[in-house]
């Protein structure tokens, strides 16, 4: 880990000022990913701005939805009664990720900023465009079982590793941020980026912006939902493919559908066309297969990860079946419902 200075502001404005004054500075809260990367010399901030004392730890009512403070720990969020009752999809996705210890540390805002698990990104001895722009993408033609099948570029095929983010994408959350010029709100679907020719940029947050909250809209999907995560061991592993699915059913027909995939792209993957395809359709397998076909229509493998296209297709169908039946995937009983 490199040498750095440390500062602990107690107001948002002060934190933003600190960040704006030092381009090498980074905010730190849970630290579960930043310290990990610093120990691998992948990140080397000149200054850490400890934001854990900022007043961003509340979950508040917001026009029928909820405003989740950026510092609310993952476990507090997952076990919050309002989340459990109204947004069980979000609770389930959080509990599918990491470990209880990490969930106690990691924060809502930090989860949005966690970086890829690509083994080349983590290994400073190998080329990686995300870590060292212009050095090349080692994952193309390399170890890429975990890598993207959607939205990748010739410069980067990394995936976003978040589980929580997949549920937030499906729920159409938004991200409220503060910068030197005030606050703005970013729709969740526009928060993360595709790699394009700037894979070093994971998201559209400006360098001097701080996440204040994640806001959930009023629509809950508390009955017909699921978070289905497929991985190489039954817990404490990153997703090969995960699916957040949520439906509103009326008379056996799908009135509203939400669908997002994790583990397959540089961002939690949503496809409005697939959701649109489901609307008005009967809640049955044929509809689900159509939607799965749509969401994966642009999928492309890179060798080792070719299988993820078919796996994702099947996972989407199953997740929609689980959601439609009102039998969400348990995160402790490992039998897939």
């Amino acid at each position: 880990m490199n040498r750095f200075s440390y500062v602990r502001p107690d107001a948002v404005a002060a934190a933003v000022r600190e960040r704006a004054s030092d381009p090498g500075a980074r905010f730190i809260a849970g630290g579960t990913n930043l310290l990990d990367l610093m120990k691998y010399d992948v990140e080397a901030p000149s200054r850490l701005i400890d934001i854990t004392r900022l007043p961003l730890r509340d979950i508040q009512e917001l026009d029928g939805g909820l405003r989740i403070g950026a510092l609310v720990p993952n476990s507090d969020l997952a076990y919050d009664r309002r989340i459990e009752e109204r947004y069980p999809l979000l609770a389930s996705a959080i509990l599918a990720g990491a470990s209880p210890q990490l969930r106690n540390m990691a924060t809502t805002g930090g989860n949005l900023l966690q970086r890829t698990r690509c083994v080349y990104f983590y290994d400073t001895a190998t080329p990686c465009n995300k870590r060292t722009p212009g050095s090349g993408c080692s994952a193309i033609g390399g170890i890429n079982r975990q890598h993207a099948i959607l939205g990748a570029s010739e410069h980067c095929i990394a995936t976003n590793p978040s589980d929580m983010g997949v549920a937030l994408a499906a729920l159409r959350a938004s991200v409220r941020v503060a910068g030197p010029d005030g606050e703005r709100t970013i729709p969740f679907s526009e928060f993360h980026r595709l790699p394009g020719d700037e894979p070093q940029r994971d998201n559209n947050l400006a360098a001097d912006e701080l996440i204040l909250s994640v806001d959930l809209p009023a629509e809950h999907f508390a009955i017909n939902y699921t978070y289905l995560k497929l991985r190489e061991r039954l817990s404490y592993a990153f997703a090969l493919v995960s699916v957040a699915a949520a439906l509103r059913l009326e008379d056996g027909k799908i009135a509203e559908a939400r669908l997002a995939l994790g583990g397959v792209a540089h961002k939690p993957w949503r496809d409005e066309a697939a959701e649109e395809l489901l609307r008005g359709q009967p809640a049955e397998r044929a509809s689900f297969e159509q939607a799965a076909g749509q969401i994966l229509s642009g999928a492309r493998g890179f060798g080792e990860n070719d299988f993820k296209i078919e796996l994702a297709r099947r996972a989407v169908v199953r997740a929609l079946e689980q959601a439609a039946a009102g039998t969400p995937q348990s995160q402790s009983d490992k039998r897939v419902q």
Binding site: Y6, R8, I28, G30, G31, T32, L35, D36, L48, D50, T52, S75, P100, Q101, L102, N104, M105
Partner: peptide, 13 residues
């Protein structure tokens, strides 16, 4: 009283 990973916790924080 909450379980955490001490390796990813800065003492100063």
């Amino acid at each position: 009283d909450r379980r955490v990973n001490a390796c990813l916790t800065l003492a100063v924080m």
